[in-house]
Computed example of a mutant assay.
Amino acid sequence: MLGLILLYWIGKYFYKLAEEYNKSRWGYAILGIVVYYIGLLVLGGIVVGIVEIIFEGFIDSVNDVLLSFIALPFGILSCYLLYKYLEKTWKNNDPRKNNMIDEIRKIEE
């Protein structure tokens, strides 16, 4: 249940960001959720693998819920990084921000 709430919030923030910059809202909401799972699996798997190398047999003795909580911050971090990247990129390429014509007019006056 907690995971579904987290997925809702991730999708909601990506949906709002895409809506603000007139991009595909549902596409980017789904992209945010997919990036969450990729970050969860890849980065969480790397950390769990390193811990398994250092402490042999650790994974066998740990509860599955605890493993998911260990990997959770990596999924959230990957979503946050993608969100900030998209926000920065879209803000720099926003045609509403480009007021070069107005600036040329001010220089001539």
Rank of each mutant, 00 (worst) to 15 (best):
F55L: 15
N98W: 09
K106N: 12
G45C: 06
I101T: 07
G49T: 02
W26R: 02
G45K: 01
G11R: 13
G57I: 13
D64P: 12
L82P: 07
N63Y: 06
R25G: 13
Y8W: 06
P95Q: 02
D102N: 05
I5C: 12
L41F: 02
I10G: 06
Y80D: 00
D64N: 10
D94R: 08
G27T: 03
G39P: 00
I33G: 04
I54S: 09
V47Q: 03
E19H: 14
Y15L: 07
L81G: 10
W90F: 10
N99A: 03
K16Y: 11
L81Y: 09
F14A: 05
K16I: 12
N99T: 11
I46M: 02
E108L: 11
V34N: 03
N22M: 12
K106F: 01
I101C: 13
G49F: 06
I38G: 01
R25V: 15
Y13E: 09
Y21N: 00
N98I: 13
G3D: 07
I104C: 00
K84P: 04
V34L: 05
I46R: 12
L2S: 02
L77M: 06
E19F: 04
I10W: 08
E108F: 07
L2W: 01
G27H: 15
E109Q: 12
E52G: 04
R105A: 06
G11D: 10
D60V: 15
A71K: 15
C79L: 09
Y85C: 07
K97W: 12
W26M: 08
V65G: 13
I76H: 07
I30N: 03
N99K: 03
Y15E: 06
W26V: 03
L43C: 00
V35S: 07
I59Y: 10
G39S: 00
V65E: 03
Y80G: 04
L2T: 04
C79E: 00
G57F: 05
L40A: 00
E52M: 12
I33W: 15
G11I: 05
Y15G: 01
I38M: 00
A18D: 01
E56A: 10
G75W: 02
I76F: 04
K97P: 06
I38V: 08
I70K: 07
W26C: 01
Y80W: 12
S78G: 05
I38W: 02
W90R: 02
E52K: 11
V51Q: 10
I33P: 08
N22I: 10
G49A: 11
I33F: 05
N92P: 03
D102C: 01
F14N: 08
E20H: 06
E52L: 01
F58L: 06
D102V: 07
K106P: 14
